[in-house]
Structure formats: structure tokens, C-alpha cells
Design a protein around this nucleic acid. Structure first.
Lengths: 329, 329
DNA sequence: CTGAAAGCGCTTACAG
DNA sequence: CTGAAAGCGCTTACAG
């Protein structure tokens, strides 16, 4: 493997000059820079990251942190994020490192090791939880980080998110305007995740604007009886906005079992179901995880350029509603 | 951040001795080693990976490579693998680096950069495809790699897999012995993935052993009419072994729509569906991705110890059949 | 505009 | 059993 020393020798230059030329240092003449790059290319020169990182006291790596617990279905979203993140990192000649564990302690150790041993200075968290120990750690270290999902009220850091209020309204409007639904209900989990609250807010606004009566169903996790009961108690319901695809499909299936011949339209979120499991009455709001991953990297590298300004503290990624035929993220 | 030089100074030893002591070099007295480790611990010493890697000409990192194309649902499996992989890497003080891209060329560039710039010498591929350019590249480089899934016939390298013939037979036996199914059919995709062929083989063996008549259904991707037709043409079918959960659920749902009052038992693979989408008649063979991830790392570090022997060229991870209540991978 | 030199924090062959 | 020294491949303050 050729080193800058080899290039220097070959060209009769010093290693300093070669190094500067490769790094586009202005103090080196345009001509020399061009020449050096040409020879480097031709010799198949590849920079040694370990050497560079040692000198720079900083690794060209971003640590991507997974949540300790997650629903299996969220994994679909994570891999999309990874795709977007890595795409941008590659352009910056950065590398993607993963921290994942089964307990908070494991993840903390993982992250500490990234900071202290690998000298990683930039992180992306694939989640945003309240009172998260990993976030606490990162805040008191000399590192930058971005979360996927906005911080709880009162907290402040860089983040990427969707406009979930708008996503809630858009889902509702889609049902009413495109699919001629009269009485859409809103279905959410009992966990009260921030994105659910926002989507519910959007739903409520959309309903209010039309003077329609809003109905919110907090869906119990393991009580199918309650789901059945809810459906039967709301005979006028002809559409559902569900905070995730699984909840949506669950209600949809129960509805079909109860009323095989009645029509219902459902909108879920995340576009996470394979086409084979749904039909033309099942729709999904795509949150574009790849875009979110890209945005996270951009924010991480450019977000705090001006520490004092409020610019670019966040990136909001647009969603889209409808049927989709995606087979890979 | 304390360095070995700081420890050396503090203890009145040379850096060589400290370095050797920390690495448990036999040439350093037991007593000195203990002392050095104690002081290192107390000073909060953390090894600098970049320095070490530069000296060793090898990074303490494993490159984990994603396939270019995959079904969204496979992502569930990948994150489980990552969990198992990282668990073992952490124990070895190794780091997990990701290569993922949208084209083969992107992934190839990613991997080349890992080899040449980051000096990564060990890789895990989360897939095993025929004629894969990434595998071709790895084979001609001085690196070790392990694939998830066995190589095509005639090819040879380290891999981790399930015993899919047994998994096919076990799924079938489970239906017949535990659930008293009389006429299970086998449903597979039209892609002919190696694991499907093996599971089918296991199904055929199990049926043959009982003198039952085997029926194999090659399920078309976007032709629900065909699915319906198949069900109607096989009135005696009272169980299904489907090569993945989605295919299984798809048939299950169509069956229920056609015969709401008839009972059918389905076994899928991967345990990838949330409980909310299934009921007590839907079962799944769990392939234990976490275990597979762990096994991949073990194989990667120990598999080729004896280059000449055939020992440990692969690791077979046991599956398990049944209902499961897992919420995270 | 270019170079000689120091230094980043390790490991290890060589010497004693 | 321990140490002095060289070297891994870079970057950059200092000097010219």
C-alpha cells in the first residue's frame, strides 16, 4: 500500500508538501496540488485512517446508537435510516460504527468506549427517549449528537423528525378527501409516544376544521375483546387513522371479520407492511427513513456551525401518503 | 486521557513494560502485571485504538455487510443479527462497522475502503448470494469472512446457518404431532432461495416418513386469485408450512376469508410478526438471529485456526418452533 | 511556496 | 525480567 512518503519520494517532494497537497491546503500551489493528486491516484494511494485519526485525535467515524428495547417492527425503520446515514457518511469519507445492546449499561459502555478509545466525536441516536442515560452521557461529553425524533418539551439538542402534526392531519385529509370517508376514528397505542400525540393533534385539527366529531381509540395491546367491542360500538366508523401500520392492520382485520361486506379505509404509518398482507383499502404514510438518515448526517456536520444562532437545530423531513409498492426500504 | 506513558512515569517503569503488562505478556512478572493493571484502572486508562491499530496494521473492527436489495421484512432479522454480533465483538474489544449501499458498486467501494483505508481484516455478510461481487472481492483479499447462510453448492467458505432441512421437518412434525393436522401443504416463494429448497426437502421427508401425500404450492407474488384458487382446490388442507411468516399469514387470511368457520393451523418462519397480527393458530419457527450473530463472530475469530483441517467451517444454529411472545427481536 | 522535525500513542525486535 | 529505540503513517507548528 502506497503511503504519502512513497509519493513524496517518487516526486522529489517532502511528505509535508504531499500531505498538504492531498488536503488541498491553500499554501501549496495549485499546480503542485494537481500533480500530487494525479500521482497519488496513479499509485493507488489510500490514506491510512488509523494514522490520520491518531494525529487528529479524532476518528472519522459516526457512532449510531440503537435503543435498548424496541418493537421488532421498528427494525424495518432502522435499516432505512442506516441506508440514508451511510450514504452521506461515505461522501464525507466517514465510517459508520454501531452501538447496540440489551441493557442500558451495555450501550453506555459501548458508547463510552467509542468516545474514549475510538475517539469518535459524533453520534446519531435512532430514537429520542425521555430521561435516557445515553443522551445524558452524550450531553456532558465534548461530542456532537443528533437524535431521530424530537426531544421532550424543555429539552434542546439537534434532531431530525417528521412534522407529525401535519402527518396526522394529512392522513385524515387523505381519508376524507381522496377516499370519501365520512367518519374516521383515530387509533393510538397506550404508550403515549410523542409522535402519537402529535399525529392525534393533527387528526383533531383536521376533524375540527370540518366540524366532524373526533373519536380517539386507545388500543389495548393484548385485549382483542376490547377491539371487537370498540368496532361494534362505533357502527358509523368507515375509516381509521392508526399511529402505526400494525395497529391499523389489526383493526382492519377485525373489522373485516365482523363485517365481511362493509367497506373501510385505513391509514397507518411507516409503510412497513409487505403488499401481500394488505389490499387496496389499506394505506400508509411513508416517513421516508432514508431521507431522515441523510438529514441526520447533514445536521450532525453542519448543525452547530454557528453555536450562537438558532439556525438548523433540526431538520424536518416530509412524509407522503398513499399506497406504495416498495420492496426494499 | 491517561496514556501508557503516564502509567510508566507514575510507576517508574518503561512504556515497553507497561505495554507488555497490559497485554499480559508472559515475559513480565505476574506481580508487575497485576500492579500495572491496578494503576491503569485507577488512572482511568483507556487504550487508544487508533494508535494500536496503526502499530498493528490492523483495525479492531469487523465489517458487517448488508445485501444491496432486500425485502423490508428481512430488516427484522438483520437487527437481531447485529445484536448478537455486537455482543460478541464487545467481549473481544472489537468494534462493529457497517457497509450498506443501494448498488453493488457502492457496497464494493465501501468494503474496499474498509480493507485499504481502515485496515479491517474481518467481515460478516448478512446474506449469501450466488455470484456475489462482494464475496468475490473478499475471497481475493487477505481477509477473513463469514456469511449468514450457506454458500451455493461447490463453493466453500465459513458460514453460519440453520439446519433448514430439519427446520422444514420440524415445522411439519409440529403441525402433525402437536396440532393434529392431517394434511399439511408446503408453501414457498417462486424465488427458489436455498433455505426454501431445504425446508421443502424437510417437509417432503416428514410427509414421506408418514406415507402422507405431499403438496407443494409455489405462491405467486401478486396474484391473489391464484391463492384463492389453490385453497379452493385443496379442500382437505388443514395446515400449512410456509417458508416465511408473511406468506403464511397471507394464506391464513385468505383461508379465513373463504372459510370463516373452518380451522387451519399455519407454521411460518422467522418469528417476525407482532402478536397482534396473529392468533393461536399461527405459529412460527424461530431461527434465533441473535444466536446466529454470536456464532458468526465466534467462527470469524476461531474458524480458521487450523487452516488445513475441516473443523469449524460452519456453525449450525438450532431453531425452535411454537408461539412466541417476543417484543424485541 | 516548500521542508525538516516533532508528535499522536501504541507494539515489538533487539539488547542486556 | 525490564528498557531504549525504532517505527506504524499521518498532520502541523515552526522555520526559511
Amino acid at each position: 500500500m502506497a503511503t504519502i512518503r512513497d509519493i513524496a519520494k517518487q516526486m522529489g517532494l517532502s511528505v509535508s508538501t504531499v500531505s498538504r497537497a492531498l488536503n488541498d491546503n491553500q499554501r501549496i500551489s495549485e499546480k503542485t496540488r494537481r500533480e500530487v493528486k494525479r500521482v497519488a491516484e496513479q499509485m493507488g494511494y489510500q490514506p491510512n485512517y488509523n494514522a490520520r485519526n491518531l494525529t487528529n485525535q479524532e476518528a472519522n467515524a459516526v457512532g449510531v446508537i440503537f435503543p435498548v428495547n424496541n418493537r421488532v417492527v421498528d427494525n424495518i425503520f432502522y435499516v432505512g435510516l442506516l441506508r440514508g446515514i451511510n450514504e452521506q457518511l461515505t461522501e464525507r469519507n466517514y465510517v459508520l460504527s454501531i452501538a447496540i445492546g440489551n441493557t442500558t449499561e451495555q450501550v453506555l459502555d459501548n458508547v463510552k468506549s467509542m468516545i474514549n478509545r475510538a475517539q469518535i466525536k459524533r453520534f446519531i441516536l435512532l430514537y429520542s427517549h425521555i430521561n435516557d442515560d445515553v443522551i445524558k452521557l452524550l450531553r456532558q461529553q465534548p461530542v456532537e449528537f443528533v437524535t431521530i425524533g424530537k426531544p421532550a418539551a424543555g429539552q434542546k439538542w439537534l434532531y431530525v423528525d417528521n412534522d407529525n402534526i401535519k402527518a396526522g392531519a394529512d392522513g385524515t385529509n387523505y381519508l376524507i378527501d381522496q377516499l370519501h370517508v365520512q367518519n374516521p376514528v383515530f387509533a393510538e397505542s397506550q404508550n403515549g409516544w410523542p409522535y402519537e400525540l402529535d399525529r392525534r393533534e393533527g387528526y383533531l385539527q383536521a376533524m375540527h376544521r370540518r366540524d366532524k366529531q373526533a373519536v380517539v381509540f386507545s388500543v389495548p395491546e393484548n385485549d382483542e375483546q376490547k377491539v371487537n367491542q370498540f368496532i361494534q360500538e362505533h357502527p358509523k366508523m368507515d375509516g381509521v387513522v392508526a399511529t402505526d401500520d400494525y395497529t391499523g392492520l389489526r383493526i382492519y382485520n377485525w373489522y373485516k371479520a365482523l363485517y365481511p361486506d362493509k367497506k373501510i379505509e385505513v391509514v397507518g404509518y411507516n409503510n412497513s407492511l409487505p403488499n401481500e398482507l394488505t389490499d387496496q383499502h389499506f394505506h400508509s404514510v411513508d416517513l421516508h427513513p432514508i431521507e431522515m438518515g441523510r438529514a441526520a448526517v447533514n445536521l450532525l456536520f453542519e448543525g452547530n456551525q454557528d453555536k450562537n444562532s438558532a439556525v438548523k437545530k433540526r431538520a424536518i423531513v416530509a412524509h407522503s401518503v398513499g399506497k406504495s409498492a416498495k420492496r426494499s426500504d
